[in-house]
Design a protein around this nucleic acid. Structure first.
Lengths: 216, 216
DNA sequence: TAGATTGTTAATCGATTAACAATC
DNA sequence: TAGATTGTTAATCGATTAACAATC
């Protein structure tokens, strides 16, 4: 671990750039300018060039950056070169929507197993997967060496399931429930909450008639 | 509009504080210290006090802040005192999950109408609402004076539906599709994308064995 | 060449934090 | 009073931006 760890802000922007570049690559584009990325993700073009330069990503003056090359370098920086296997907990409406969310595989994220505790759901198919009993969680997670989980269960069950995940060795939890979950040091939690986003946006709606566009 | 418009970072933290305070209020707590908020939302306690002080929110030394009072003041600052009516577009799995997401009403966000273009879904009930034909969008939005929409349609339909929303007069769009949508100046878009969050988290997972917890 | 866009500097601005007197 | 926590200062650190020479 001699590598420098960059601040959260930079990595956040990097993720946004990567997300956009993969979209461009998909439609067959080969180069892109910092100006164009700026328009798409809402970050100042000078800052984008500075970010890229920080990671030793170089472009061609007068032309722009090579999309495929930047994608490769970004994936290396983030550590997303190989597949990341994910356990999805909760086979309800949200869970089903996540399984069918096609940008995930495009970025190397694969839902490897889906769990629920409802007997009516266990054994049912969701996408290509059969819903497993939550009691099989630890075994399956260990066997498939899964380190990442998406939590799409009821708020009441959130902490209990989190404890199971931690016990099974999961290191990253993307939390789609509205509650804050407690995890030991060493486990990363990311909470996705529409309420915070709506509140944030509401403020600007009420203060300005002006356009304001946020990427994240 | 003589009021000062605060930077995005501050408002983002404010939304996170509010989210947490409402949770505390629900379980009957009356006061909270900056230290406790800090532990919950992952922001330095000095920064929290500085933020509150910026908005003229005062606490009691040795005691902390009065939760109900802070909630009221925050709602005023954000402009969330009264109900915000929301149009939900897309009655699939994600749309259904959003309708049933109970923190929304707790913060004054009410799903007033739900739309789809699939004849099999139109007329069906989702929660307490009957799914309406997307062609009724403009009429309903105008009649209910709806200014906010949540977009939970397929990526292919995203831009087309966005244009309808803009035409109907919607000012805020919470975008749950994986595509970037184009809107005119004056319309605010917030994109919620699990891919960016996963990429961001993956970086820290690969660089540190250390705990790292992000609130937003 | 002419036009476009990078890579980098230098200056500014805002965010973050530790520390502690004030005071409940 | 003793303990706790605010409110605020002062110092630091990192993010942001404009500008433009370099160069494709």
């Amino acid at each position: 671990m001699k590598e420098k760890i960059y601040p959260s802000g930079v990595i956040h922007r990097l993720s946004a750039y990567l997300r956009y570049l993969v979209q461009l690559d998909e439609v067959g584009r080969t180069t892109v300018s910092s100006r164009e990325i700026s328009d798409a993700v809402g970050v100042n073009s000078a800052e984008i060039r500075r970010d890229l330069s920080l990671f030793k990503v170089v472009g061609k003056r007068g032309v722009g950056y090579n999309i495929k090359s930047v994608i490769t370098q970004f994936n290396e920086i983030i550590g997303a070169q190989q597949e990341t296997r994910i356990a999805l907990i909760g086979a309800g409406h949200l869970g089903t929507a996540i399984v069918n969310y096609d940008p995930l595989p495009k970025h190397g994220f694969v839902i490897s197993a889906i769990f629920d505790n409802d007997p009516k759901r266990i054994g049912q198919k969701v996408g290509d997967l059969v819903v497993k009993d939550i009691r099989e969680l630890k075994n399956v997670v260990k066997r498939h060496r899964i380190t990442t989980a998406i939590l799409a269960v009821s708020p009441e069950a959130a902490q209990e399931v989190t404890d199971l995940l931690v016990d099974a060795g999961v290191k990253v939890i993307l939390n789609y429930t509205p509650v804050r979950i407690e995890v030991p040091l060493g486990v990363i939690v990311q909470t996705t909450d529409p309420v915070e986003k709506l509140l944030h946006t509401l403020y600007y709606l009420n203060r300005t008639g002006q356009g304001y566009s946020a990427a994240g």
